[in-house]
């Protein structure tokens, strides 16, 4: 190759599909946990009405958006960020960074401490959102994986570990 060439940005279809599924799952699980888990309920209660937050990758996603509706009900609002006003954006600097996060090779606090994450929005709410994500990860993941994803594995009651977890999983899948 001796001449100048222009290279259009390629795509990463596999990562996009994988992340799409994972984000959908997390989004639905947040919705479910907000109905089941008292701590998650409390965190959402502290957020203003109609508050929304998103998790995604720079510059073109994929994303997931979760928010409260007029009736204070927490809903998964899909993946199209242009359709919603988002109050708090948690964005990974690239899709690969998000992929590394969702394949549990880097935990959220580590990704954050390695400058891979940007948070735009009010800090107290951002803290609440991260705590919600942590709780949801504990619900969704088996203990060894969850330990990789969060800082300190919580000491929950047996009910929370079994009954509540089952309820979160059922509600996540059925979407009720």
């Amino acid at each position: 190759m001796e001449t100048f060439i222009e290279i259009k940005p390629g795509r990463k279809p596999f990562q996009r599909i994988y992340l799409g599924i994972m984000l959908w799952f997390v989004g639905k699980a947040i919705q479910a946990a907000a109905r089941v888990d008292n701590e998650v309920k409390k965190e959402f209660k502290g957020m203003p009405a109609n508050y929304t937050f998103s998790l995604g990758a720079f510059p073109n996603g994929p994303y997931m958006i979760v928010g409260k509706d007029d009736k204070e009900k927490v809903r998964y609002l899909g993946s199209n960020i242009s359709k919603h006003h988002v109050d708090l954006e948690i964005t990974l600097k690239s899709m690969k960074n998000l992929f590394v996060l969702f394949t549990f090779r880097e935990s959220t606090p580590i990704a954050n401490s390695r400058d891979r994450m940007i948070v735009n929005g009010d800090l107290p709410q951002a803290c609440a959102a991260v705590r919600i994500l942590d709780i949801v990860q504990v619900y969704l993941l088996p203990k060894p994986l969850a330990k990789l994803a969060i800082k300190r594995y919580p000491r929950w009651s047996l009910k929370r570990h079994t009954v509540d977890r089952l309820m979160v999983l059922i509600r996540t899948i059925t979407g009720i």
């Binding site: 190759m1 001796e2 001449t3 100048f4 060439i5 222009e6 290279i7 259009k8 940005p9 390629g10 795509r11 990463k12 990562q15 996009r16 990758a57 510059p59 073109n60 690239s94 899709m95 690969k96």
Partner: peptide, 25 residues
């Protein structure tokens, strides 16, 4: 160029929406 260093760079721009220009080495 010979050792293929441009490849990881091009890969890093996937999904970025940015076009890269590559000069002759």
């Amino acid at each position: 160029q010979l050792k293929g260093c441009a490849k990881p760079l091009i890969r890093a721009f996937k999904e970025s929406g940015m076009t890269l220009g590559l000069c002759p080495p």
